[in-house]
Nucleic acid binder design. Sequence first.
DNA 1: TTGTACGCGTTATCAA
DNA 2: TTGATAACGCGTACAA
Lengths: 354, 354
Amino acid sequence: MAAGRPTIADVARVAQVSPSTASVVFSGKASVTDATRARVLDAAASLGYTGPDPRAASLRRGSSGIVGVVFEEHLGAAFRDPIKAVMMDGLAEGVAPLGAGLLLLQDDAGAPGAVPASPNLRSAPLDAVVLVGCSGRLADSLEAVRGRGIPVVVIEGDAGPGIPRVELDNREAQRHAARHLRSLGHEDVVVLTLPFDASRRRGWVDADDARAPVVDVTRERLAGARDVFPAARVYAAGGSLIDEGLAAGRMILARASQRPTAVIAQSDLLAAGVVRAAEELGLSVPGDVSVTGFDGITVDGFAPYELTTLVQPAAEKGRAAGAIVTRMIEGSDAASISFTCTFRQGNTTSPPAR
Amino acid sequence: MAAGRPTIADVARVAQVSPSTASVVFSGKASVTDATRARVLDAAASLGYTGPDPRAASLRRGSSGIVGVVFEEHLGAAFRDPIKAVMMDGLAEGVAPLGAGLLLLQDDAGAPGAVPASPNLRSAPLDAVVLVGCSGRLADSLEAVRGRGIPVVVIEGDAGPGIPRVELDNREAQRHAARHLRSLGHEDVVVLTLPFDASRRRGWVDADDARAPVVDVTRERLAGARDVFPAARVYAAGGSLIDEGLAAGRMILARASQRPTAVIAQSDLLAAGVVRAAEELGLSVPGDVSVTGFDGITVDGFAPYELTTLVQPAAEKGRAAGAIVTRMIEGSDAASISFTCTFRQGNTTSPPAR
DNA sequence: TTGTACGCGTTATCAA
DNA sequence: TTGATAACGCGTACAA
């Protein structure tokens, strides 16, 4: 053991046992006499050996105990999204049986030409990969990963055939909320959507500008609303934030002559912003305008309002993703799984004023 | 290449070159004839070889490209804290030069006896570790990590001697805000603190119950406020949330006879909650009560208020941590670094009403 | 520019 | 219960 850190072989030598015995002492994979264990532990202590090198163990074992989580957006943005936060919680739980940790990866293929110095899918020692609403950019890296036999799962997105997904009934759920509004008597509604694409352009979406949203969630929820209100006007927000909803709400509710009787927002934060905009304009919710959200999160600081919304099982989605990769790692092949939102009536919807 | 995935040796064999040549083709560490490169690449393609196994490469190279980030709280909680979110962004940038990814680790030594199945410090292949406001629980794991020669940095916390820190001038900054209030003429202020300890007990803190907060940030900021207002009453919140501030604000501002003229909140979210509580009670801010925050974040949905607050350089803190571990990995030993908050006057403070 | 040979630190297997 | 041996898959001196 000339220089460098001591290895398990050094420990074994000092303890006068074989390397395999020393290994067993640390891994606990087999029983060892108390006496030998003590000898090994003593030797380790005297040498300053603190346990097997994870890298070597990982190579030998063929697994690293690491699950990669790929976000399509900036980390900070992902962190601020309450749904994603809860989902991560669920995912952490879901991979716990694997004893795995979550490695944050950013899908930043970004500008072509830019050096993607960041650790990508190819270079990280992963046991599995979870894609969170990924776009198609990392198709090649993904191919490499799958080629290596590493399980991949997508949450709310489509990463191609053969990749199991964790899905949400966005369209059906949104349709449910829309029907609720129609049954209350609403006819003139505006749909406030999440961003259509990476450009995040805000504003009214022309009816004839029938560009379908690139983002799956946006598209599906919009389709659900249009199933009930085909002629609904559409306004795109720049992100899922109260402030975005507030700005949009000001535009949507500004002119009395063109004011809808209800706004279908594609997220609770947007909905909360619309409610604030209504307040600002002296309108009452739900008296003058009804508002529905989507997600079923607790909007911090929004009491006493309680949004009429679709509650999505965010934590379960994460857990499911974890469970799927767990099964795949164990060799069984796992199927996609689909979750259902629950309609929850709050106090932000009522029949339209006459 | 009997069974299993193809290795670089298989590729070399098929391409009729030596393994080392094949290796070089993938790493680009040396120049190779175009012809040979093509042969190797072709062989790889035909075999379905997608590049060097990260595990083996990691062992060989001695580094994994992974930086562990240890949170003391539930992942979901950490994600929801805006300051931590921004910090993570900065950290991601800070470790980019390393090409490293961030591995989320939870400081869940938790109940003794519980099986900490999760990947801990000891079992993860880390190049460095960043502790985020850690408590002392993982002292032993930390020792093992350091024993292995892995760099460790702490953000806002004390992990013992020899561990560089990224610090904030919490006490001085909070003192600055307190002085601002005093110079405006305030004398009766209440300090609304972050949780004192893991129990997160809410409520008034008796003056004689002089228990010092266990949490560094809470303690330091409280000390700063007391430097100016030694007799200030203290109310502890259960977390950094608008709703917590709202609940606390209701208690603090409820009885006119005991109503302070100003509230020093230890976070912007708490401050926003206090402002909402004041509104609820028909009090105007800052006319009837002044409120200061801490952090300098944009509180979503809080416009048109602009908190008088201390702006902390959250992203820079993360970047600095990244820079420090980068330097340490390169062998140079790095010192702690301390950041300063900037006082920003908003529209939530003014002289007290007579 | 290419090839040979060895070591990185473990752990699985099998025999004793 | 313990020990000997052989991979695990790659990178890199060093020699050719």
